[in-house]
Write a protein that binds this DNA or RNA. Sequence first.
DNA 1: CTGAAAGCGCTTACAG
DNA 2: CTGAAAGCGCTTACAG
Lengths: 367, 367
Amino acid sequence: MKAAKVTIVEVAAKAGVSVATASRVLGNYGYAGAKTKERVEAVASELGYRPNKLARGLITGQTRTIGVIAGDISSPFYAAVLRGISDGVEARGMSMLITNSDETVAREIAATKLLRENQVDGLIVSPCDVMDSPHLKEAAAAGIPMVLIDRKVTGLQIDSVSVENIESSRDGVARLLWAGHRRIGVVAELGRTASQDLPKFLASAGQGGRTNLNAVSTSWQRLGGYLAAHRDAQLEIDPALIVHVGEHSASAAQQSVRALLETPDRPTALFCADGLMSSGAMAAIVACGLSVPDDLSLVCFDDLDWMAFVGSGIDAIAQPRRRLGKAATALLIARIKGAKGRARNLKLRPRYLSRGSIAPPPGTSTA
Amino acid sequence: MKAAKVTIVEVAAKAGVSVATASRVLGNYGYAGAKTKERVEAVASELGYRPNKLARGLITGQTRTIGVIAGDISSPFYAAVLRGISDGVEARGMSMLITNSDETVAREIAATKLLRENQVDGLIVSPCDVMDSPHLKEAAAAGIPMVLIDRKVTGLQIDSVSVENIESSRDGVARLLWAGHRRIGVVAELGRTASQDLPKFLASAGQGGRTNLNAVSTSWQRLGGYLAAHRDAQLEIDPALIVHVGEHSASAAQQSVRALLETPDRPTALFCADGLMSSGAMAAIVACGLSVPDDLSLVCFDDLDWMAFVGSGIDAIAQPRRRLGKAATALLIARIKGAKGRARNLKLRPRYLSRGSIAPPPGTSTA
DNA sequence: CTGAAAGCGCTTACAG
DNA sequence: CTGAAAGCGCTTACAG
């Protein structure tokens, strides 16, 4: 049943030319007489010839395929970023191999290996360990074109595209402060070791040490923005207001936020550091019977579709997700084509969407 | 800079064995002496040998890569389905090439071509034309393993995994009817030619002709369920209540729904046929200042994360999206491994999530 | 258990 | 403008 594949050899034979010539017209490079060209093409389409990219790739050393390592392709953030990448890739007639790391180093390593064995022309990765990723460094050293997306890795000087996390978080939190809030909760993932890292981080942030923030994961950066806004306003931080969820999970966030909201001295506003945290926080807010912004003001990092119509609308720091993917693809393709020169680190600016989820703290007279 | 790739030839040479032997231990098939094996493996890891899957694929005729054609990988539905596929694929050490069709035949054809040139071992596709897809039929006839997901193509007898659209829509709408609603709006995409197709469809559905519903796109099937529920209850259909949006777009849905809701004789309940329709409808409901379920009851096909906390929660017909992908992958891999026999058509059953968005129609006395 | 040799389907200098 | 030949990196009968 399996129809025998027609190869270039058969096309050449039937067209009465050499394989070399057939190859030249079918791959359209090099010279070929008009008549020859026509004949070969006619035979090829008649026979239903389909070039074998494996053979082509083996010999040219290019597969016209890139590999992508995302955290979780089903999350709205990565799904949109991937779409941006995909658009860039498809527009160039290239292909895209996709993997998930689930923010796990072991899986990221496995993915890197698999992708390299597949001879991808380049890699776009959202590294899960921003401090030390030997497998990525090795790949970069081996000369495989690579661009980092959403985050960077300390000591890895390669192209990257990320988002202004610190500045835009600082701005978002500042808006809450301007509205009069003094007890603002922050909900962030912060990894498993947050309880140890947090005191150090708070201490160093206190000095206004800003440099180290670039060497840290996005959720820490956004927390950094929160701290910076408070420092700008010369306000102390109450560590009890920092909810470190510890995992990428909406339901974990929901539990932690609920606990905070049931506290007697609960915050009058919340800043959520990513989409998962926002979903969890919103669920907790509803579960506690609180309404936004009357009982609680809210600013969320990353714009999810429901933020447009929940309550009176939720203020969001909207990341240019698709553009993130597009830009990464453009950088990668340039490198694949041989672009030299030092690493380019693009930083895209999110847009603040003001929808009305910020009100003065409850009990404040508006008069 | 580009580190020369180490091939099996070098490994063999340095280990003092033939390429054949090196190949046998590195690909681990065939016999190899314990000592030889050890030595070859040592040298391979020392040299950082990385098998070239192109060469391997060229000769074995298997790439251990599958191709996926989705509508839009950034939509929550496809994103989750893809994750299901991805899990199945990664668990077997295989890879996955992903493309978007944007529900466009031309792009689907291009994707099929590209994927086949990449010599994928099989294809999972969500076909955008359920009536006639010669490119898919050709691929199937050529013997490439393929499974259809979410929808089927008339006249293409191959494996498929879809969802019980008709039955579960019928059930969802029935719940609205039980609650006393008599004017229930339905919001569905239905394609560009809906205005012509609708009268015919209504007429044939009137006869209880059920067979043709399998040969129709998911949004038509869900409309079919709506009609069936009304037929069960012996109620007439008011065509004015059928909102055919015409495109896969939340904002288009929002506009159409808004128009319906601003009508003097507006419905007391809404049934939304997919996620995009639901987002649009919800935005329209909020824009009109209506509240769910007091002013309007609501049932949505496909469960989006916000439905858990918007208002008092929105009833949803939750599709097993990830399972859809997993099941498709399992079927595909079985075929790739050579499973024969007639096409299997899996139909997964959604779960109805009752959250409280159904109330009696406004003005009904509960007493 | 191991090796020499052919070959997967294509591209690419190199002659002509 | 066209063809003969080598070769990309591997696997697979086939002998031994």
